[in-house]
């Protein structure tokens, strides 16, 4: 019994170590005073300071946030609509196709999604002259495409769990269909939408592969910037930047989890 629990604890410790030591070491070295990224030279926050003086980093961060917020919002609107259609419109013609298409970006390799979107944008440009330049708009569209899938799934499952007679009761009491959506449906699926938004936001902020495919000259997102810097060797300010991203993403995921858990209780 005791030997067994010790074994389990050891396995657990190794598991956590495997998952979190790389992350912890990034955070640890971000406070390194030394210019050499892997040699400890005492505690310092100078790399954080240096980061905020680096215009390239700030530009990339600004672009990434702009894309993340826009695409998360678009994905939440479109994803909620698809989730609604999938959960509430019964068996209509093309339902299987729609549900397959909505969820396909989740299982499709990112390289394929990126490549196909790039091809789409290039041919669109040749056909109708838009998008003239790849950058903010194309990356936002690409991110909306794959984030939408997650929002649709979350909203759909929330709607399926929700008692349909709530909406019927509201209608029976004199609520017109559109009013019922605002009075009953939206307040009840709001937690799912918020969770979906937060998830989309973090997904967009993380993405390197798809953004690399569909971005153009002059539009570098934060992950792209980091990746290009690392190719020349790990510099300590990148550690600082990575630590900030870890913090932001952790908070986003934790919030999404909290919101879903709270909504599940109701």
């Amino acid at each position: 019994m005791k030997a067994q629990s010790r074994f389990i604890l050891t396995v657990l410790a190794f598991g956590y170590a495997f998952l979190y030591i790389p992350l912890a070491s990034v955070v640890f070295y971000s406070f390194n005073a030394s210019r050499l990224a892997t040699v400890w030279g005492g505690f310092s926050t100078r790399w954080y300071g240096a980061l905020f003086e680096n215009q390239q980093v700030l530009d990339a961060l600004y672009l990434s946030l702009k894309i993340a917020i826009t695409s998360a919002t678009l994905a939440t609107i479109l994803g909620t609509m698809s989730g609604f259609v999938l959960a509430r419109f019964g068996r209509f013609k093309g339902r299987t196709l729609l549900s397959g298409m909505v969820t396909s970006p989740m299982v499709m390799p990112e390289v394929i999604t990126g490549l196909s979107l790039l091809l789409l944008f290039v041919s669109l440009q040749q056909l109708i002259g838009w998008p003239g330049q790849r950058g903010f708009s194309t990356i936002t569209i690409a991110h909306t495409t794959f984030s939408l899938a997650y929002v649709a799934i979350i909203v759909q499952s929330r709607l399926i769990a929700m008692d349909e007679s709530l909406e019927e009761a509201a209608m029976d009491l004199g609520g017109r269909p559109l009013r019922v959506v605002f009075d009953i449906t939206l307040p009840l699926i709001a937690p799912a939408m918020i969770a979906g938004w937060l998830l989309s936001f973090t997904l967009s902020l993380d993405d390197l592969v798809i953004a690399s495919f569909v971005s153009g000259p002059g539009s570098t997102t934060l992950p792209m910037y980091i990746f290009s810097k690392v190719k020349l060797g790990v510099s300590p300010d990148i550690n600082a930047l990575a630590s900030i991203i870890i913090a932001v993403v952790s908070i986003g995921v934790a919030l999404a989890w909290l919101v879903t858990r709270r909504s599940a209780k109701h």
Partner: peptide, 8 residues
């Protein structure tokens, strides 16, 4: 309604 359908 059978489920009462009370708005939570």
């Amino acid at each position: 309604f059978q489920s009462y359908a009370i708005f939570p």
